[in-house]
Nucleic acid binder design. Sequence first.
RNA 1: GCCCCCAUGGUGUAUCGGUUAGCACGCGAGAUUUUCAAUCUUGUAGGACGGGUUCGACUCCCGUUGGGGGUACCA
Length: 485
Amino acid sequence: MALAGPPAGETWAPMSMAGDSTSGVMVAAVRVRFAPSPTGALHIGGARTALYNWLLARGTGGGGPGELVLRIEDTDRERSTPENVAQILEALEWLGIDYDEGPVMQSGRAERHAEVVAQLVDAGHAYRSTAGPEEVKAYKAAHGGAAGFRGTDEGEGAVRLRIPDEGTTVVSDVIRGESSFVNALLDDLVIARADGTPIYHLAVIVDDLDAGITHVVRGADHYSNTPKQVRILKALGAPEPVYAHVPLLHGPDGKKLSKRHGAASVQELRDAGYLPEAVRNYLALLGWGYDDTTTFFTTEQLLERFSLERVSRNPAVFDEQKLRHINGRYLRELSLDDLTARLETLTGRSGLRGAAAISQEKISTLAEFWPLAGFFFDGPADDPKARAKVLGGSDGRDALARAREALAEIPDPWDEAQVEAALTRVLEAGGYKPREVYQPVRVALAGTTVSPGIFETVALMGRDATLARIDAALAAESGVGAPEG
RNA sequence: GCCCCCAUGGUGUAUCGGUUAGCACGCGAGAUUUUCAAUCUUGUAGGACGGGUUCGACUCCCGUUGGGGGUACCA
């Protein structure tokens, strides 16, 4: 049975639906949309909203095969730039979120918006008024402060929608339940400026209606404005979509998430070396939970299990540490080919396979690879403190010299087992503790105290480079270490 | 100011009247150990407060406090 038919008397007639309505076109169970305004890079809050919509459209939680429409709400010409639009498209692509229609530019639908505004005026649902902020304020003051503004038809100025004086407007939300707003407290809202351009609320309603959107899944920052949009819908005699307002994301300080909070945009996440599949997993979990124990979900599982009913009502705080943890798990499960390819894409270098192999279990993000293994390609890192600490004393240099001797004697093939055997002999012969030999070698090759495993590192570096770096380190340090005190 | 929403450990969540309030991140300890990680074991920490309703409340109701959102001829 139908959920909510249009009120008697008027019916919404979409302007240009694909195909004709009489030919029995298959109607998607859910038609959702992601409608960002391109005022900056796509933030994780927006990314999560996009993800939820996508999971609904592509997964089974929406009740069947669905469709996702991407609409760019660019009616604010000041802040909407082509660069920002491009960034959003790029972010969605990186995240693996595809869509069936769009991107539809809201600005391109101005005529249609004007048409609906005119229709509303003609029907007596809206009127033109020159009242501005001051008049509205004065009106409220004159009516005891808490009263919705009611204007009079002046035949010119901005177009305002008439709001009833009686009754309430109920917003029904899958996540939040129902809540009602007293009509008398709602202002006659402006739906178009004096110059005829539409206001956001009008544009959203018309665009969603024309696109046949069944579920409006968006950030909770739109919740309080929903009654206004419902009023427009009622004036139009159009059915209401299912609403779902997902909780906002906050920064660690509890405030609404913004640029100040670090890795907040999708691009930054990508550059920081996070994997899109890990980001998807993490984002899904920010404000949603499936059961009492599951943390890791493949995208297939998310598609199968995600549902709006289980979305939380509380705002969530973005926790990069947890993202890192999840990312590390995904990263370690990557095949070596896959990992290598991703590292090469990120760094713009090639020939990373060997280093990738011995670094995989030590990094949590792709970006951590280069600091850990870049010395293979760019030479030892410049870390004076590490050199001073490990090779500054004669003990360290002696151990390094002995290691060099043992390594030089390794017969072909030069491999991990031989390296380990040689260094173990040094340990035994000199009565050294492992670190007393390994750290000097590590610093000689890497220039710093942190690197992949020492045997793997030496083996991968090869005989010539290893011996050369040790010689260079020995030469550089022998003159230093001046007597102190 | 007014309207609306929200409230489980530091963080994300599970629990939909009866549980020793579970899981994960973080943090602490231990194991492992060539650095750093990873891994394993283990510990730590929670129902904002006050009233009700009930045989019994984290769960339902009211209030308080706290947080958030909205309140534009912005989106």
